[in-house]
């Protein structure tokens, strides 16, 4: 499944320039000279555990700011915005599936998925968001699970709720940290297809961190963080991405 219609001539959804980030002296360091993602483009980020994939997603979402360089989302660098503006922009325009899912235990699946709408009424009418959630829930097989709390759901079901939460705001950028990591092969393919279909419908850019190399053919760009060299999907063997280690 290659990208449906990435528009390479369009203004970039994401543009990374001379990115540098470290957690402290002597600790892990991330160094990415340049990278560009256009609306509708799908990129997979691979690499061994601990190489900085999750950190990169945080930087792309403006959750963290680089030590040096620039990460621009839809033409505006996250570092040019204050904390409140970054949060506002992220909530409205970025859908994020976290590695640990981060569902709130006291809320039902429905309230978890709609948490942004509950806390930021300016995102739009709740009724419209609920209708969209119902539609997503049908696709994800969650219709009968929406009134359950995370404690009453399997890991796979929780993962689908997290997916619904990321997509319900109709974001222009979707970041997913191993969104199919705990699903069985069939559910994995189904969830990925729904994610890709939704992203295509929205015309959104997608960056997925994954250890599952079976899914890489669905992405236009595969990015091996260990090699720090984005390459087109299906590039000849022997490129750094092929040498990526399997999941730890």
């Amino acid at each position: 499944m290659p990208d449906a219609a990435p528009r390479s001539d369009a203004p970039p959804a994401l543009e990374v320039t001379d990115l540098r980030f470290a957690y402290g002296p002597g600790a892990f360091e991330l160094d990415l000279p340049a990278w560009r993602l256009v609306p509708g483009e799908r990129a997979a980020c691979i690499g061994p555990s601990g190489c900085g994939k999750t950190t990169l997603l945080d930087l792309l979402a403006g959750i963290r700011l680089p030590d040096a360089g620039r990460v621009a989302f839809e033409g505006v660098a996250w570092s040019e915005l204050d904390e409140a503006a970054r949060r506002r922009r992220r909530l409205a325009r970025v859908g994020f599936v976290f590695q640990e899912l981060e569902l709130l235990e006291h809320l039902t699946a429905r309230d978890n998925a709609l948490v942004a709408h509950h806390l930021a009424p300016d995102l739009g009418p709740l009724a419209a968001a609920e209708a969209r959630l119902d539609e997503l829930a049908r696709g994800l097989g969650l219709e009968r699970l929406l009134d359950r709390r995370p404690g009453g759901l399997s890991r796979g079901e929780r993962q689908r709720v997290a997916l619904a939460r990321a997509l319900v705001t109709s974001p222009s950028l979707v970041l997913a940290d191993e969104p199919t990591g705990n699903l069985d092969p069939r559910a994995k393919r189904g969830a990925l297809e729904l994610l890709l279909a939704e992203v295509e419908r929205l015309g959104a850019a997608l960056v997925v961190v994954t250890h599952d190399h079976d899914l890489l053919d669905a992405f236009g760009t595969v990015f091996d963080l260990q090699q720090l060299a984005p390459r087109p999907s299906g590039a000849p063997s022997g490129t750094p991405a092929d040498e990526a280690e399997p999941p730890a």
């Binding site: 904390e83 922009r89 994020f96 976290f98 981060e102 709130l104 942004a116 806390l119």
Partner: peptide
């Protein structure tokens, strides 16, 4: 803390969290 961090990572405004 974990729950409040989730709100922050999602992008929920500090004021909205405080209001909650």
């Amino acid at each position: 803390r974990a729950e409040l961090e989730t709100y922050a990572r999602l992008g929920v405004a500090r004021a909205a969290v405080a209001r909650l």
